[in-house]
Design a protein around this nucleic acid. Structure first.
Lengths: 349, 349
DNA sequence: GTGAAAGCGCTAACAG
DNA sequence: CTGTTAGCGCTTTCAC
């Protein structure tokens, strides 16, 4: 009674040869059928397929990789310095997207998390090992990531999730953080807010830099000047948002743009302690629109990043790079969307 | 100036043969050196190692797997029905533990997320493919998981994260949920609470069942009777905790045991809306002790699960099963710890 | 459209 | 202690 394919377990460890014999054809023909090559008589193809189906034959992964020089395995690399891997809901979502796209394309995903410098050293040879991975997705981490430089030099097939710093020839996909931040800040300005502060991301990440830049540009655009006391650096954690919030709220902002929803939650906690109300005392716009955005009180107005799509896009672009060798660097920016809820004080849509 | 191993890029795609030639020995000898076999003269070993180091030679992954029948690849399988993969901080932490242990043991981790029934069908052959994975870690999901039965029948090397339902012969590691829940409830009783409610996990998971069972046992033990209106099923999400909380708080509990911290956060949000104070109006104990436990107001008293250790333990036990074929089933229970903070009203330790 | 044969790069007996 | 020799199971020319 299986929804899962039920197969004849007596016949296990089958090889191409076995299938060929059963079907009365040669190994090559079976191989052609498996690899969907045209040049096989339809009748033969059907016969072979039937036998494969009946026996539950699966080509041997290692043998196939060795002969074809393709593993259909890609790696997701999380460099050290990505400390929020275990607290930021961004990553599970990204992994989900990547995983889905891998499944779709018959690729398998391997995970390489560099928990320490030691592990990075140990793992680097592994990710660049012959015959193991067809390509890599590397999460952008801190500025001047040596890992990325090495991969470039090596001529590896890889793509970066997030804009890398100072690496014009590398492939990457990112959301347009500058534009997104501008949208957030513009919305606050449109609500009539004047003293707009920000909790930034870490200044040694491009996400932190770019969102801060968007904030600055938009304020200038509207002739508002930047009060440095209203700019506090966070680290993309709730705790960091709280700490930054305590700091920031001393200086009476009437609005805050938080570079992530999770930090916005920390800010709200800080506000509660200080008996400040959102959005009455200050309006708030976050960034991400992941589940936490809706479990705050008030619910967050925020910038929605298409993270799932980012994951899918990463895989598909990577596969393209693997297959067609990336001539010109792919530098792709995805759009974001302002989601209006309660925290900005402009009414629930 | 790289911290990463700098190697001679001119010499790429080296084979054993090349190294053998350079070292003036045979392929076998080089192979022996690589595989750390004793029977090589020390001088020769050094010479070979030097050349490997100079050239940056890496054995070809697929070739090695094919010949040795070992891939040093293990899979982490998240069955469908694990909907909280992207909201429950439990999973990132588990993955971190597993990943660390893999690195430690020179294994690589692959991720198989069954996002849908369709994907499960598609991926099942892949995880049971010849020559691909040496073993599997499967997250326990809903009761009567067909996937697990299939893997058992197949004689696959695998271990389950969490107690499976009704599968006496399977290997698994779990925390002792019954005992942990008893500890939580006992603590509430000791604070003098009498109307103790619970937000349970899903009743179709063993984690949900076992924690609920512990709750029941402990109440009975103390001669407190169970009021069904004070038992509400949650789904391990914040939103679910909120909904359950609204429901539960109608019936005036003076304490609540929440089967997860994230649900406890939802409960607190519900309480805030109803103008109830924790721990004044009701005391609260959660479960997990992951970052969210500290970012609530009040901070959560909770049961600490050793999730990182669980991950490491899973890998090490699996590797043992792979190497020594698991004769007798491994059924391992890990200890938990009560962490007292603010939400139970017994003072901050 | 199909088969024979030659590898892919490695491990693992088996000799010596 | 070391080299020779067979494969591991598949893909891929190259003939036919």
């Amino acid at each position: 009674m299986g929804a899962l394919p039920k197969i004849d377990y007596i016949m296990d460890n089958l090889t191409l040869e076995d299938i060929a014999k059963k079907a009365g054809v040669s190994r090559s023909t079976v191989s052609r059928v498996i690899n969907n090559q045209e040049s096989v008589r339809e009748e033969v193809r059907q016969r072979v397929l039937r036998i494969i189906d009946e026996t539950g034959y699966q080509p041997h992964f290692a043998a196939r990789s060795l002969a074809s020089r393709r593993s259909r395995l890609i790696g997701l690399v999380i460099p050290r310095g990505v400390h929020t891997l275990f607290t930021d809901p961004y990553f599970p979502r990204l992994i989900q997207g990547i995983s889905q796209a891998c499944n779709q394309n018959d690729y398998t995903l391997s995970l390489f998390i560099f928990n320490s410098e030691e592990e990075e050293k140990k793992l680097y040879p592994r990710i660049s090992r012959q015959g193991m991975l067809d390509g890599l997705i590397v999460q952008a981490a801190q500025l001047e990531d040596e890992l990325l430089t090495q991969l470039m030099e090596r001529g590896a097939s890889f793509i970066i999730a997030g804009r890398p710093y100072n690496l014009p020839e590398a492939n990457f996909i990112d959301v347009d953080n500058v534009f997104a931040a501008r949208t957030a800040v513009k919305h606050l300005i449109q609500q009539g807010r004047k003293r707009i502060g920000t909790i930034t991301g870490p200044k040694n990440t491009t996400a932190g830099i770019d969102r801060y830049e968007g904030y600055q540009i938009e304020l200038k655009e509207h002739g508002l000047e930047i009060d440095d006391r209203l700019v506090v650096e966070g680290d993309f954690t709730e705790e960091g948002g709280y700490t930054a919030g305590i700091q920031l709220l001393k200086h009476n902002p009437d609005a805050v743009f938080s570079a992530s929803d999770v930090m916005a939650l920390g800010l709200i906690r800080a506000a509660n302690e200080l008996n400040l109300k959102v959005p009455e005392d200050f309006a708030l716009v976050g960034f991400d629109d992941l589940p936490p955005a809706k479990s705050s009180n008030p619910k967050l107005t925020t910038i929605r990043q298409p993270i799932l799509r980012l994951g899918i896009h990463l895989v598909e672009t990577l596969l393209d790079i693997i297959d067609n060798g990336g001539e010109l660097p792919q530098r792709i920016m995805l759009d974001t969307e302002l989601i209006i809820r309660e925290s900005c004080g402009s009414g629930y849509r």
